[in-house]
Simulated scan of single mutants.
Amino acid sequence: MVGASTVNVGLLTDLHYDGSAAALNRLYGAVATLNAGGAKTLVVMGDLVNGNSEHHAKRLLREVSALCDAFKGTTYFMHGNHDLDHLTKAEFYNTLGCAGNASRFDFEAGGYRFICIDCNFTPEGEAYGIGNFEWERCAVPAEELDWLRGRMAASLNPVIILSHQRIDQPSRFSVQNVDEVRKTLSLAEKVTAVVQGHNHVDDLVRLDQTSYYTLSAHVDDAGPAMLELTPKGVRLIRDFQPPEKE
């Protein structure tokens, strides 16, 4: 039973929105579901669109933004690798009406500090943009790891990390410096949970006293996920459905 002190945060990942009626209806339904479930915050965790050109990608992003405008709370957008096939990171945020937004950011919700990291860099530290990358070669650069350490150290609350790519264990869907990233999180001793996408599977790995949740893809008909935040802990509900009204 959701208590009065519960704060709900909705999560969507890997929309791969293509402008079709099916994609529009799927996203419209997900936003309506999160509204009905009382979510106060929505984070869209990357791979919003499947564009085939700069113009096409921007048009699709504007449609996604318009659909997400129906969400009654605060919406945050993270980019994935697909979003940068034809755009820079700045163009991604500009098109969504979020000009000047940083590709890494943090916010407070329900007594937790959410830190959204950007793994869309080559192992050499070059930012992804306009297809200058191979999606299997990604990493969190040293400068961002320093930023991450600082944000975790400054937090008086437990931390939840959101990442498009996997940062739990080596795989073709993970950052190449996964061991360094995980060690950074472990040493902070504040990270309650990590939520990640990109892999299009549901998965749960428990490492270093931290739960690493991988969410399946919205494009594959996965429903929105809901994080229920309470003073006692965090509960992740996959394929969330609001309770029926009596």
Rank of each mutant, 00 (worst) to 15 (best):
M1T: 09
V9M: 02
V9P: 01
G10L: 01
G10D: 01
G10C: 02
L11S: 07
T13E: 05
H16M: 03
Y17L: 11
D18W: 12
L24I: 00
Y28N: 14
T33M: 07
L34R: 05
N35M: 02
A39K: 09
V43A: 09
M45R: 13
G46M: 01
D47S: 03
D47W: 00
V49Y: 07
G51W: 10
N52H: 09
N52C: 02
L60T: 12
L60H: 01
L60V: 10
L61I: 04
S65V: 05
F71C: 00
F71W: 08
F71Q: 06
T74F: 07
L84E: 05
H86V: 01
T88L: 08
N94Q: 14
C98V: 03
C98I: 10
C98L: 01
A99T: 13
A102R: 14
S103P: 08
R104N: 11
R104F: 14
R104Y: 15
F107H: 02
E108K: 14
A109Y: 02
A109N: 11
G111F: 13
F114I: 11
I115V: 15
I115A: 08
I115E: 02
C119L: 00
C119G: 15
N120M: 15
N120E: 15
P123R: 08
E124T: 15
G131H: 06
F133Y: 15
F133K: 04
E136S: 15
E136G: 08
C138I: 14
A139I: 07
A139C: 13
A142R: 13
W147K: 04
W147P: 04
P158D: 10
P158A: 01
I160H: 07
I161C: 11
L162R: 03
R166P: 12
P170W: 09
S171Q: 14
F173C: 12
V175R: 08
N177T: 10
V178S: 10
L185H: 09
L187A: 14
A188M: 05
E189L: 02
E189M: 11
K190N: 09
K190Q: 12
K190I: 02
K190S: 05
T192A: 14
V194T: 09
V194G: 05
G197D: 14
H198L: 11
N199D: 15
H200L: 06
V205F: 02
V205K: 10
T210P: 11
S211W: 00
Y212H: 14
S216Y: 10
S216T: 01
H218D: 08
D220S: 04
L227Y: 03
L227M: 06
L229G: 04
T230H: 07
G233M: 10
L236H: 00
R238C: 00
E246Q: 14
